[in-house]
Design a protein around this nucleic acid. Structure first.
Lengths: 235, 235
DNA sequence: GTCTATAATGGGATAGAC
DNA sequence: GTCTATCCCATTATAGAC
């Protein structure tokens, strides 16, 4: 049931999205610092002072570039969103080519998480921070007072994965499909944070930061969950 | 494979843990207000002003009763922890009595989440807020600067569930056991928050707040995931 | 235990020089 | 674009009367 895949050509990216001629170095430094600060202490727990200090710039420069705190947060999330969403779309395109239905399901589930893990593990510290931040954002109630920039960036991509699974197993009831994928997203939201719960529970024998080891288990485990509903629907 | 269980006698509780003679009403009002505020806006996003206002007391009373903000947060988490952990322990005791191995696994997985869902859905607004707050806390990186009161309260309970599964299927490898349970915890951490992602993705057809509908699907889905590792180990 | 008043700090944001 | 200096506000926490 498990499919071997090559090391996935998500990284290095073909070209940086940012036009280095116009983009001021300090603006990028602020984004990097903000990314790290927000993921460590959350939105309200992070002060613009801390961000500016970490970036090595005066506070006023943050306001100049991003207007206010909310603008900074949105900019952090949106900077890497296009590349990340594109990576997910691309991996889905490959996955749906798999022949057999069972293997295709597993490939689609892997395609949802593999490019993200790839960036987190081998994309550098910036990507690591960004992916963890995405995990945090995914765990925010959607009616949050401040910004929720994620939906616009990722919602369509998520829906396309759900559609892909539906087209593999049309006999799956809408409820089983939606709940199953929700469970998958739910687990991933926590996993991406790398909270350290499994580290503590196993005295360090297993590490929540070891996404490379976790990934094949995750895909295999959730494929079985989906398949159990498929089999139940077939009866 | 699915086991029917009666409506679970977790609520109403036999007796309130709090001695109503000594406990000042206002102190409880503050805890209720803090519970609601923390879950809505997070720790750093909540001000003691807001809490005091919501509780209908002056700010100073909060400091008097709980010392500081961190003390208030700890008190909120710890107030309901003994009753909640006891409910989980009790449900585990019942679950391990199930005869067949397959059914016992499913019963143990249900026992982990059922009493919590029961309190969230039928324990009143206070319990609803508390359970959501637990979800948020579970998603915090453990090396958080401030308080992490959960481990002491719940860690032993979690370990006893893992032990129970290990004793059902000793042939399961340590890695499969730990990763599987981690996936289960991860999904639950997000689900308890009732973030609203599935609501948005399905235009309201499915609701993350509908824990009653979700629960049997969740248990069934994750049982299949565990069983797939059991079967793989048996070969 | 409960309250009013206030101290002391740190926060986001802006004015204006360079 | 970048900087220094500063304003104004919200926040936590405490002092002290009742």
């Amino acid at each position: 049931m498990t499919i071997k895949t090559s090391k996935a050509p998500y990284l290095p990216e073909p070209a940086p999205k940012i036009d280095r001629r116009k983009a001021p170095k300090k603006k990028q430094a602020i984004l990097d610092a903000a990314e790290a600060t927000f993921v460590q202490r959350g939105y309200y727990g992070s002060s613009l002072r801390d961000v500016a200090l970490a970036a090595g710039v005066p506070q006023a420069l943050v306001s100049y570039h991003f207007g206010n705190k909310e603008g900074l947060f949105r900019a952090v999330v949106e900077r890497r969103a296009p590349a990340n969403a594109a990576g997910m779309r691309q991996s889905l395109q490959e996955a749906v080519k798999v022949r057999s239905r069972a293997a295709r399901l597993e490939a689609v589930l892997r395609a949802f998480i593999a490019p993200v893990v790839e960036r987190s593990m081998r994309g550098g510290q910036g990507w690591k921070n960004y992916i963890r931040l995405l995990g945090h954002i995914a765990n925010l109630p959607q009616q949050e007072a401040f910004v929720m920039p994620v939906p616009e960036n990722y919602e369509a991509v998520v829906l396309s994965f759900i559609e892909a699974i539906r087209s593999i197993y049309p006999e799956l009831s809408e409820a089983d499909l939606q709940w199953s994928f929700y469970f998958y997203q739910a687990a991933i939201a926590h996993i991406l944070i790398e909270s350290g719960v499994i580290d503590r529970q196993t005295n360090g024998a297993f590490k929540s930061s070891d996404l490379d080891k976790l990934l094949p288990k995750l895909v295999s485990f959730f494929t079985a969950g989906f398949q159990s509903f498929v089999k139940a629907a077939g009866r």
